[in-house]
Nucleic acid binder design. Structure first.
Lengths: 200, 200
DNA sequence: GTTTTCATGTAACCCGTTACATGATTCA
DNA sequence: TGAATCATGTAACGGGTTACATGAAAAC
């Protein structure tokens, strides 16, 4: 029933798709490789892994050291649990990757989506980047409007905070512009410059 | 009992300190004037107001239109509830303002603290700005270290994401540097340039 | 041999949102 | 008169954290 709306879920599936791992290692990768923009604790990771197993997207496997006859002989030892993506799990993740709905470019989701762009279709990448950009442009419009309405009643610090906030958003828009540009260029290089396209 | 660790609580007290308001208006101010960096819904605002009243930091007052004899005569009408900061509430908020502990420069708190810098002592402002800056510098160190360790195993998109993330943090550090500079300049202008200070 | 780091989990809580319910006032 | 906006609230849920408990393996 639970939606598991899923930044964490998405990231876990994505990382496990590259290679099986146990929880501890997974968490480190979440907070470094992928991380910077979001941190997770074991308190959320392990329960998440459990529910993914419950849905058949992951399987728990004994760690490789279970092959070791010495360790195997000693009963009662708790082996590392290595999580591996199942076929259904892979299929599900690919569906998620193909999706480019509005939620894909919200603040919380965009970062993790971008982190897996390497596995994402070019067209989907474009839609997500452009969606994100127009999302931010809407926000800029609202900020500018609100600033125009309230400029005089605000003190210097509040004003400075808003100015800095707007600059941050403008900066991200420029970044997206560059990325979109690059994507387009590499697409055009592939299919050859199309006069009917560039003439527009 | 509840901690109410309080971005919302802080902002409510701060806004009501400037002038009494009813909930609806309060929420708008939270999401525009102060806002951009955080939004709140009624579902969190009204319960928060209730608990603040419960602690004696706010009082509910009938809206000004209750003075209107016509409206007052019509029984059963639900008046707007105007919230006003009590003396204890004001005292409490000033304690919060004076505080410059580590939590003041965390991501979640820093924005709201900055928004009320207009009401904050110069020394406290300095400590918060400097605390925030060193917090971000630590983060940069960790990012650089992690990047150096993992650079080759990462694909282009992940790398680009990290690069952009680091640039964002670096940019905020530069912003803080300017703010600190400005604060220092205005302080020095006050007390006159001190040779023993500038010689260092 | 002891401290660190690796490794797995659980229970309680926190701060907030969404969706809903209700009704008054203003504007077209 | 009907729609938009003003205005106040509640119940259920959501996605996470903190603090705790446990124990093996590695490093010193």
């Amino acid at each position: 029933m639970s939606k598991r709306s899923g930044v964490l879920e998405f990231a876990v599936l994505g990382l496990l798709r590259e290679s099986p791992m146990h929880g501890y290692e997974l968490r480190k990768r979440l907070n470094t490789s992928l991380g910077m923009f979001r941190a997770f604790s074991y308190g959320s990771l392990y329960p998440c892994l459990k529910t993914l197993v419950g849905r058949g997207w992951l399987v728990e496997e004994p760690g490789p050291e279970a092959q070791d006859p010495l360790a195997g002989a000693l009963s009662g030892r708790r082996a590392k649990i290595v999580y591996r993506l199942t076929a259904e799990g892979k299929e599900h993740f690919e569906e998620l990757l193909a999706h480019s709905g509005p939620d894909a470019w919200e603040d919380e989701h965009f970062g993790v989506r971008f982190a897996f762009f390497g596995q994402t279709e070019r067209e989907v990448r474009m839609r997500v980047l452009e969606g994100r950009r127009s999302r931010l442009e809407e926000r800029l419009d609202r900020m500018r409007a609100s600033l125009a309405r309230t400029r005089e009643r605000l003190d210097d610090y509040t004003l400075e905070l808003q100015r800095h906030g707007m600059e941050s958003v403008e900066r991200e828009v420029r970044w997206l512009n560059e990325l979109i540009e690059t994507e387009r260029a590499s697409r055009d290089r592939r299919s050859g410059p199309d006069p009917s396209d560039t003439a527009k």
